[in-house]
């Protein structure tokens, strides 16, 4: 699977970081909201459940999973 994020919609709520810290970080930027940073663009299958939860529970629906 591949991870796609629509960064314009991110407000740094950090649900993804709590669900899948192996795949997502939330970083401070110069101005505005902290933003999601994808640590692994092609995460292993073993992390699927965590990544799916991150995508599903993101309040702003920033994360999309694209199947290979």
């Amino acid at each position: 699977m591949k991870i796609k994020v629509d960064i314009d919609l991110c407000q740094g709520h950090s649900v993804c970081l709590a669900e899948a810290p192996e795949v997502f970080d939330v970083v401070e930027v110069d101005d505005g909201y902290p933003l999601v940073k994808v640590l692994q663009g092609n995460p292993p299958e073993a992390l699927r459940a965590k990544v799916e939860r991150a995508a599903k529970y993101c309040p702003n629906r920033v994360i999309t999973i694209i199947e290979d």
Binding site: Q11, G12, H13, S14, V15, A18, D31, Y33, P34
Partner: peptide, 14 residues
């Protein structure tokens, strides 16, 4: 304004 809104959202984090 951006900084204030960011601080406001920080209060809504996980």
């Amino acid at each position: 304004m951006k900084a204030q809104l960011k601080i406001q959202v920080n209060a809504l984090r996980y």
